[in-house]
């Protein structure tokens, strides 16, 4: 099965254990996480996780479905890195950047 890099964007309520549930979806799908960034968005109490993994499209779909079933996840979607160029601006606009 063809594997490639997929980037998953997850918006979730900033709760104890939610990151554990998010990474657990990857464990259940037997997908290794290559990169993981989490930050709070401009909306208080909502965090954004950007997760990169090399896997098949079928596997990442399964992981994203599991992520969307997490009660404290607002939305999860997957992208290929080339799509991300167009999304990044929007994502970073949502982040609360503190320097």
């Amino acid at each position: 099965m063809e594997t490639k890099e997929f980037i998953v964007i997850v918006y979730a309520y900033n709760q104890i254990g939610v990151l554990n549930r998010i990474t657990n979806a990857y464990i259940k799908g037997n997908v290794n996480i290559e990169k993981l960034n989490v930050a709070e968005t401009s909306e208080q109490g909502i965090s954004l996780a950007v997760i990169s993994a090399v896997t098949s499209e079928e596997a990442i779909r399964r992981v994203v479905n599991l992520l969307n079933n997490i009660i404290d996840v607002i939305e999860a979607r997957f992208y290929e890195p080339e799509d991300m160029l167009y999304k990044e601006l929007g994502i970073y606009r949502n982040l609360k950047i503190t320097v």
């Binding site: 104890i16 254990g17 554990n20 657990n24 464990i27 259940k28 079933n69 009660i71 404290d72």
Partner: peptide, 14 residues
């Protein structure tokens, strides 16, 4: 308990 039951619950809270 929370960590142990994460994969086997729909939701959990302490």
């Amino acid at each position: 308990t929370i960590s142990i039951t994460i994969p086997i619950t729909k939701w959990s809270y302490q």
